[in-house]
Computed example of a mutant assay.
Amino acid sequence: MIRKRLAGTVFVSLVIFILLFTSGCDSLSNPFKSDETSSPSTTPPVTAAKPKPVVKSVEATTSGMGDHYFAILEITIDNRGTDGTVVVTASLTQGGVTQTNEMITNLNKDKTQVLRLTFPLKWKGGDWTQTVEVTVP
Protein backbone atom coordinates (compact mmCIF):
# COMPACT_ATOMS: atom_id res chain seq x y z
CA MET A 1 0.00 0.00 0.00
CA ILE A 2 2.78 2.37 0.81
CA ARG A 3 4.38 1.58 -2.52
CA LYS A 4 1.18 2.42 -4.39
CA ARG A 5 0.81 5.66 -2.48
CA LEU A 6 4.47 6.53 -3.11
CA ALA A 7 4.15 5.64 -6.81
CA GLY A 8 0.97 7.77 -7.06
CA THR A 9 2.65 10.73 -5.36
CA VAL A 10 5.69 10.41 -7.64
CA PHE A 11 3.44 10.14 -10.70
CA VAL A 12 1.36 13.20 -9.71
CA SER A 13 4.54 15.15 -8.91
CA LEU A 14 6.01 14.17 -12.24
CA VAL A 15 2.87 15.28 -14.11
CA ILE A 16 2.81 18.61 -12.22
CA PHE A 17 6.53 19.11 -12.91
CA ILE A 18 6.07 18.40 -16.63
CA LEU A 19 3.08 20.77 -16.84
CA LEU A 20 4.93 23.53 -15.01
CA PHE A 21 8.11 23.05 -17.01
CA THR A 22 6.43 23.06 -20.41
CA SER A 23 4.25 26.06 -19.60
CA GLY A 24 7.24 27.87 -18.13
CA CYS A 25 9.32 27.23 -21.23
CA ASP A 26 6.64 28.66 -23.50
CA SER A 27 6.32 31.81 -21.45
CA LEU A 28 10.07 32.28 -21.28
CA SER A 29 10.64 31.73 -24.96
CA ASN A 30 8.10 34.34 -26.12
CA PRO A 31 9.99 37.41 -24.90
CA PHE A 32 13.12 36.22 -26.68
CA LYS A 33 11.37 35.20 -29.87
CA SER A 34 12.20 37.62 -32.69
CA ASP A 35 9.72 38.39 -35.37
CA GLU A 36 11.83 38.54 -38.50
CA THR A 37 9.19 40.45 -40.46
CA SER A 38 9.20 43.48 -38.17
CA SER A 39 11.96 46.07 -38.18
CA PRO A 40 13.03 48.18 -35.23
CA SER A 41 11.26 51.52 -35.15
CA THR A 42 13.88 54.21 -34.87
CA THR A 43 12.90 57.78 -35.48
CA PRO A 44 15.51 60.44 -36.05
CA PRO A 45 15.80 63.00 -33.26
CA VAL A 46 13.78 66.12 -33.87
CA THR A 47 15.85 69.28 -33.84
CA ALA A 48 14.37 72.73 -33.89
CA ALA A 49 15.19 74.78 -36.95
CA LYS A 50 17.31 77.79 -36.09
CA PRO A 51 18.80 80.80 -37.79
CA LYS A 52 22.24 80.36 -39.36
CA PRO A 53 23.81 83.82 -39.22
CA VAL A 54 26.90 84.66 -41.24
CA VAL A 55 28.77 87.97 -40.82
CA LYS A 56 29.29 89.31 -44.34
CA SER A 57 31.12 92.52 -43.49
CA VAL A 58 32.02 94.98 -40.74
CA GLU A 59 32.60 98.64 -41.60
CA ALA A 60 33.97 100.96 -38.94
CA THR A 61 33.54 104.74 -38.94
CA THR A 62 34.03 107.48 -36.38
CA SER A 63 31.98 110.46 -35.36
CA GLY A 64 32.27 113.33 -32.88
CA MET A 65 35.18 115.12 -31.27
CA GLY A 66 36.83 115.60 -27.91
CA ASP A 67 35.01 113.76 -25.11
CA HIS A 68 32.10 112.99 -27.44
CA TYR A 69 33.90 110.68 -29.80
CA PHE A 70 32.33 107.43 -31.06
CA ALA A 71 33.25 104.42 -33.16
CA ILE A 72 30.33 103.03 -35.15
CA LEU A 73 30.40 99.47 -36.43
CA GLU A 74 28.07 98.72 -39.32
CA ILE A 75 27.64 94.94 -39.33
CA THR A 76 26.05 93.13 -42.28
CA ILE A 77 24.63 89.69 -41.42
CA ASP A 78 23.13 87.07 -43.75
CA ASN A 79 20.66 84.58 -42.30
CA ARG A 80 20.92 81.26 -44.09
CA GLY A 81 18.52 79.50 -41.72
CA THR A 82 15.01 80.06 -40.41
CA ASP A 83 13.56 83.14 -38.74
CA GLY A 84 14.87 83.56 -35.23
CA THR A 85 16.64 85.53 -32.56
CA VAL A 86 20.42 85.99 -32.46
CA VAL A 87 22.87 87.80 -30.20
CA VAL A 88 25.43 90.03 -31.90
CA THR A 89 28.51 90.68 -29.76
CA ALA A 90 31.09 93.21 -30.95
CA SER A 91 34.36 94.14 -29.27
CA LEU A 92 36.51 97.16 -29.98
CA THR A 93 40.11 97.41 -28.77
CA GLN A 94 42.01 100.70 -28.77
CA GLY A 95 45.16 101.54 -26.83
CA GLY A 96 45.06 98.20 -24.98
CA VAL A 97 41.51 98.79 -23.71
CA THR A 98 38.67 96.55 -24.94
CA GLN A 99 34.99 97.48 -24.87
CA THR A 100 32.18 95.07 -25.66
CA ASN A 101 28.67 95.82 -26.89
CA GLU A 102 25.79 93.38 -27.46
CA MET A 103 22.54 93.54 -29.36
CA ILE A 104 19.74 91.00 -29.48
CA THR A 105 17.87 91.03 -32.77
CA ASN A 106 15.54 88.96 -34.88
CA LEU A 107 16.73 87.79 -38.30
CA ASN A 108 14.35 86.87 -41.11
CA LYS A 109 14.89 83.73 -43.18
CA ASP A 110 17.19 84.19 -46.21
CA LYS A 111 17.52 87.95 -45.63
CA THR A 112 20.44 90.31 -45.06
CA GLN A 113 20.30 92.72 -42.14
CA VAL A 114 22.53 95.66 -41.24
CA LEU A 115 23.09 96.51 -37.56
CA ARG A 116 24.88 99.51 -36.12
CA LEU A 117 26.65 99.31 -32.78
CA THR A 118 28.13 102.46 -31.26
CA PHE A 119 31.10 102.61 -28.89
CA PRO A 120 31.99 105.75 -26.95
CA LEU A 121 35.74 106.37 -27.20
CA LYS A 122 38.31 108.63 -25.65
CA TRP A 123 40.74 109.27 -28.43
CA LYS A 124 44.08 107.68 -27.62
CA GLY A 125 45.57 107.90 -31.04
CA GLY A 126 46.27 105.06 -33.42
CA ASP A 127 43.94 102.55 -34.94
CA TRP A 128 41.58 100.15 -33.25
CA THR A 129 40.63 96.57 -33.97
CA GLN A 130 37.16 95.14 -33.87
CA THR A 131 35.72 91.64 -33.67
CA VAL A 132 32.12 90.57 -34.24
CA GLU A 133 30.46 87.30 -33.25
CA VAL A 134 26.86 86.24 -33.83
CA THR A 135 25.42 83.43 -31.68
CA VAL A 136 22.08 81.67 -31.59
CA PRO A 137 20.73 81.41 -28.02
Score class of each variant (00 low, 15 high):
Lys52His: 07
Pro53Thr: 10
Val54Gly: 01
Val54Lys: 14
Val55Phe: 00
Val55Arg: 00
Ser57Met: 05
Val58Glu: 07
Val58Gly: 01
Val58Trp: 02
Glu59Ser: 11
Ala60Ile: 10
Ala60Ser: 09
Ala60Gly: 10
Thr61Pro: 00
Thr62Arg: 08
Thr62His: 06
Ser63Gln: 05
Ser63Ile: 00
Gly64Asn: 10
Met65Tyr: 15
Met65Cys: 01
Met65Ala: 14
Met65Trp: 12
Gly66Asn: 09
Asp67Glu: 14
Asp67Lys: 15
His68Gln: 11
His68Trp: 10
Phe70Trp: 05
Ala71Ser: 10
Ala71Pro: 04
Leu73Asn: 05
Leu73Met: 08
Glu74Ile: 03
Glu74Arg: 15
Ile75Leu: 05
Ile77Cys: 01
Asp78Asn: 13
Arg80Asp: 11
Gly81Ser: 06
Gly81Met: 07
Gly81Thr: 04
Gly81Gln: 08
Thr82Ser: 12
Thr82Asp: 10
Asp83Tyr: 11
Gly84Ile: 06
Thr85Gly: 03
Val86Tyr: 06
Val88Ser: 10
Val88Gly: 02
Thr89Glu: 11
Ala90Asp: 06
Ala90Gly: 05
Ala90Met: 09
Ser91Gln: 09
Ser91Tyr: 02
Leu92Phe: 15
Leu92Asn: 14
Thr93Phe: 00
Gln94Trp: 04
Gly95Glu: 11
Gly95Met: 03
Gly95Lys: 12
Gly96Glu: 14
Val97Trp: 14
Val97Met: 10
Val97Cys: 03
Thr98Tyr: 15
Gln99Trp: 00
Gln99His: 00
Thr100His: 04
Thr100Gln: 14
Asn101Leu: 11
Asn101Ile: 13
Glu102Thr: 14
Glu102His: 03
Glu102Ile: 06
Met103Leu: 09
